[in-house]
């Protein structure tokens, strides 16, 4: 299990090289989230809670590992200024069968959206535009689990 909270960009392919290849997994799912450039967005500025963020992500990666019987799990989430098209976060899950790997990745994503201590602010061409508001649909998605 590995959790990374960092301002630097990351190479998803490099981070997942060898992931889940110990012989006990039959399926690996990876998901990478990117900054989408809609509405003239230039970048996102992501604030986090140093200390709590790392702990909360590690705790929840463990919850996912136990609940879905994962053989390995990786969670990466960036903070600071991230330009359009750049990666924000990724999860990778390894399990004996594909359904557990897919579901665990989905579960982790729903949790990250509304329970991980990050706050996004939009940066437009004219500068900061405002904080991204939490969506009811993200809360509904989390309630599925």
């Amino acid at each position: 299990m590995r959790v990374l909270v960092q301002s630097e960009s990351f190479d998803a392919a490099a981070l997942t090289a060898g992931f889940g290849t110990g012989g006990d997994a039959g399926a690996v799912v990876t998901f990478t989230g990117l900054v989408r450039g809609d509405g003239g967005l230039v970048a996102l500025e992501i604030e986090h809670y140093p200390g709590m963020t790392e702990r909360a992500l590690a705790d929840h990666a463990q919850v996912a590992k136990d609940r879905f019987g994962l053989t390995d799990v990786l969670v990466v989430h960036r903070h600071g200024r991230i330009g359009v098209g750049q990666p924000i976060m990724m999860v990778a899950t390894a399990a004996t069968h594909r359904r557990a790997a897919f579901e665990a990745a989905d579960f982790l994503m729903d949790w990250l959206k509304s329970r991980a201590p990050f706050w996004k602010r939009e940066i437009g061409e004219g500068g900061p535009r405002g904080w991204v508001e939490a969506k009811d649909e993200d809360e509904d998605a989390l309630a599925r689990w």
């Binding site: 976060m89 990250l112 959206k113 991980a116 201590p117 990050f118 706050w119 996004k120 508001e133």
Partner: peptide, 10 residues
């Protein structure tokens, strides 16, 4: 004790 808005990660 920390106060903050609803989180918007992911």
């Amino acid at each position: 004790v920390a106060f903050f808005p609803p989180m918007t990660g992911g």
